[in-house]
């Protein structure tokens, strides 16, 4: 084991000499590579400038952005359909009210039980 280590360390000495003898062009290329790597270095404190709300936005919400957008679109669509239905109903009621006020309702409308029930219900509310 000691002999092995002794040989290995002698070999290492020569290898170090070889590394020192690298030509200038190669050394320059290695320097450029090192600079390039350092410019891409991941730094531990990189997120410090994004503390607080910014940090939450990037670290918590950003990974789920697609799901959040889908949910927002769904909620918006449900709300839109509901609102559109309300407008439709309001239009129908408006048409009936107008007809009532103008006495344009056909006689059959007054004979309709559902209509009478609706009329009495709404008159009691007023």
């Amino acid at each position: 084991m000691n002999e092995e280590r002794e040989i290995a360390y002698k070999v290492r000495h020569y290898l170090n000499l070889g590394a020192d003898k690298i030509d200038r062009k190669t050394a320059d290329r290695l320097f450029e590579s090192r600079m390039k790597a350092l410019s891409h270095q991941k730094v531990a404190g990189a997120h410090l400038s994004l503390t607080g709300v910014g940090h939450i936005a990037t670290d918590v919400f950003l990974p789920h952005a697609r799901a959040l957008v889908a949910i927002a679109v769904l909620v918006f669509a449900v709300f839109g359909v509901s609102t559109w239905n309300d407008f439709q109903k309001a239009d129908e009621h408006e048409a009936i009210d107008s007809a009532l006020l103008a006495d344009d309702l056909p006689i059959s409308a007054y004979l309709d039980k559902g209509f009478q029930a609706w009329l009495s219900e709404h008159s009691s509310q007023d």
Partner: peptide, 22 residues
């Protein structure tokens, strides 16, 4: 191969800096 060796070292340095820089 000197050129390939340089590329390998550059790639290795980049990977180390990008992934384990901290």
């Amino acid at each position: 191969d000197g050129e390939a060796a340089l590329d390998i070292v550059q790639d290795s340095m980049l990977k180390l800096a990008e992934k384990y820089g901290n």
